[in-house]
């Protein structure tokens, strides 16, 4: 009853990667904000994950796969910005983020619509949007987000906090940052 290596590879891929393909697709959509690019990214990432699925040794396959998806998205973004003659920048300092302290009373009274929420998330810079989506939608821990994005955990926490502040200000105040 011998199993071929291909059969084991297939089985492992289905077990440890397939459950996260849809999560990966949503991460790609949020980073690239373009459906056809996201479809390309998830396909390319899945193929890479399939080829290297042997490297996984009982570690966290969700974070592992999302890191591959994220790298794929970064490649696409890099190509895009090169086409526009600009460097892709993740530098927090150049992001203009509304950092007024949100008012809990305004927030409690605010009636947030689905459209307003998604618009506000879409307005976040990539660095902030990425940690927010990895935390709230992909359900990753700070440690896992640090692994996926290749940033220190302290940076993850400060980006998450700034993403939330920006969202709260947008949703409650309606004042948008330039």
């Amino acid at each position: 009853m011998a199993l071929s290596l291909k059969a084991v590879q297939d089985a492992k891929f289905k077990r440890v990667v397939m459950p996260y393909v849809e999560y990966g697709f949503n991460l790609a959509l949020s980073l690239l904000q373009n459906r056809s690019d996201a479809e390309d990214a998830i396909q390319e990432a899945s193929v890479k994950a399939y080829q290297s699925v042997w490297q996984l040794r009982g570690e966290d396959s969700r974070a592992w796969f999302l890191r591959i998806v994220r790298n794929e998205c970064m490649n696409i973004l890099r190509t895009r910005s090169q086409a526009r003659g600009k460097e892709l920048s993740f530098d927090d300092e150049i992001e203009v983020v509304d950092q007024r302290t949100p008012n809990p009373v305004e927030v409690a009274e605010g009636n947030w619509t689905r459209a307003a929420m998604n618009e506000a998330i879409g307005k976040l810079s990539i660095g902030l949007r990425e940690v927010l989506v990895l935390r709230e939608i992909e359900g990753l821990s700070y440690q896992q987000i640090a692994e996926v994005t290749g940033t220190p955990i302290g940076t993850v926490m400060s980006r998450l906090s700034r993403a939330r502040t920006a969202l709260l200000n947008q949703l409650s105040g309606g004042e948008t940052c330039p």
């Binding site: 891929f13 949503n26 959509l29 399939y50 619509t113 929420m117 998330i121 927010l132 709230e136 939608i137």
Partner: peptide
């Protein structure tokens, strides 16, 4: 954020492409 996020199901066509390229 969780409740209102515009979460997208994976289209069958994309799943089919991935399967064709892998398993």
């Amino acid at each position: 954020v969780r409740a209102q996020y515009d979460y997208q199901p994976l289209p069958d066509s994309v799943l089919a492409r991935i399967e064709a390229a892998t398993v």
